[in-house]
């Protein structure tokens, strides 16, 4: 991805043919050609719109209980049926999209920021800074991730916010290592030596040369991490360690309705489908982004 820097940096010559399209545009072009990736993008956009306009889209309130409507099967009035308190499941799923995407985006944003800082420090300064930070990453990665999340929530107490924090923490080492390895390879490039030779300060080198080079892998990894964050959030909710009732969080909905799987299987079916589709969307999109943006995967 050295081309990104070439376009911005006056310090290196740019080959004439590269000026025509930026690597981002080229990436978008190959992304568009990838049908599966576009399907993923559409699914993601669908759920984002659903989350944004939940108030307008949801036919009923997500918390209003109407016990007379308990466990109604899917019908034209309640497309996805109702749960044990007579709440409309479709409405709860629509509002649930808000929570899942919120946790997905913000937990990943948190891990990217912390991972970026630690990864840059470790990669750019090396030596003992690198050693300490890399060891901490090793230790965090030594735990199976969902288990570490469970441990963190067990300490902080069960809530959606704490689930978000736990998921953010477990993803930090992934991003930190990714950025560290990018920095290490970028650091050896000639334009960095050139920048140093003309007396550029560390901070400017990092922001102008190193950071733009980390962007593509962060976007790819970030998209895939949102997918796993949504599953982890639902898993914590399912175990009763994430969102608490009556929050319409998908995993929590599954936990609440699993006791009624015999009488009302739709209460278990639809929240699960919602989780799976959202996660599938982010996974497809992430795979497509990797093929489009990551030059190592290009044939």
């Amino acid at each position: 991805m050295a081309e990104i820097v070439n376009n911005k940096s006056p310090l290196t010559r740019q080959p004439a043919e590269d000026t025509a399209i930026s690597p981002w545009k080229e990436g978008w072009r190959s992304f568009k050609k990838n049908k599966v990736a576009v399907i993923g993008l559409l699914i993601v956009v669908f759920f984002i719109l659903m989350a944004l306009f939940a108030d307008l889209l949801a036919p009923y309130s997500y918390e209003a209980q109407k016990l007379a409507n308990k466990h109604l099967a899917p019908s034209s009035e309640h497309w996805f049926g109702t749960d044990e308190y007579g709440r409309d499941i479709l409405s709860r799923i629509i509002f649930g999209a808000r929570l899942s995407l919120w946790v997905g985006f913000f937990s990943v944003a948190g891990s990217v920021i912390v991972g970026l800082v630690l990864g840059l420090l470790a990669g750019y300064y090396g030596k003992w800074v690198d050693m300490i930070i890399s060891r901490v990453f090793d230790i965090l990665l030594a735990f199976p991730s969902i288990l570490l999340a469970i441990a963190i929530v067990a300490v902080l107490g069960p809530s959606l916010r704490n689930a978000l924090i736990a998921i953010a923490i477990i993803n930090v080492p992934t991003f930190g290592r990714l950025i560290r390895s990018r920095v290490l390879s970028v650091k050896e490039e000639e334009y960095i030596s050139a920048a140093k030779a003309v007396g550029m300060k560390d901070g400017r080198i990092i922001f102008q040369h190193v950071l733009p080079n980390c962007l593509a892998p962060i976007i790819v990894q970030g998209t895939l991490a949102i997918a796993s964050a949504i599953i982890e959030c639902a898993a914590l909710g399912f175990l009763g360690l994430g969102a608490q009732p009556p929050t319409p969080e998908w995993g929590q909905m599954l936990a609440e309705s699993r006791a009624y799987i015999l009488q009302a299987p739709w209460t278990v079916l639809f929240p699960g489908v919602a989780i799976m589709l959202t996660v599938l969307g982010f996974n497809l999109m992430g795979d497509g982004l990797r093929d489009a943006l990551d030059p190592r995967m290009k044939n």
């Binding site: 997918a227 599953i231 639902a234 898993a235 399912f238 995993g251 599954l254 699993r258 799987i261 015999l262 299987p265 278990v268 079916l269 929240p271 699960g272 989780i275 799976m276 996660v279 599938l280 996974n283 497809l284």
Partner: peptide, 18 residues
């Protein structure tokens, strides 16, 4: 495989049971 990767296993377990 793609669907499998995106599957919440606790939900798959519930569906299997059902």
């Amino acid at each position: 495989a793609l669907i499998g990767v995106s599957m919440p296993i606790f939900w798959l377990g519930l569906m299997e049971q059902y």
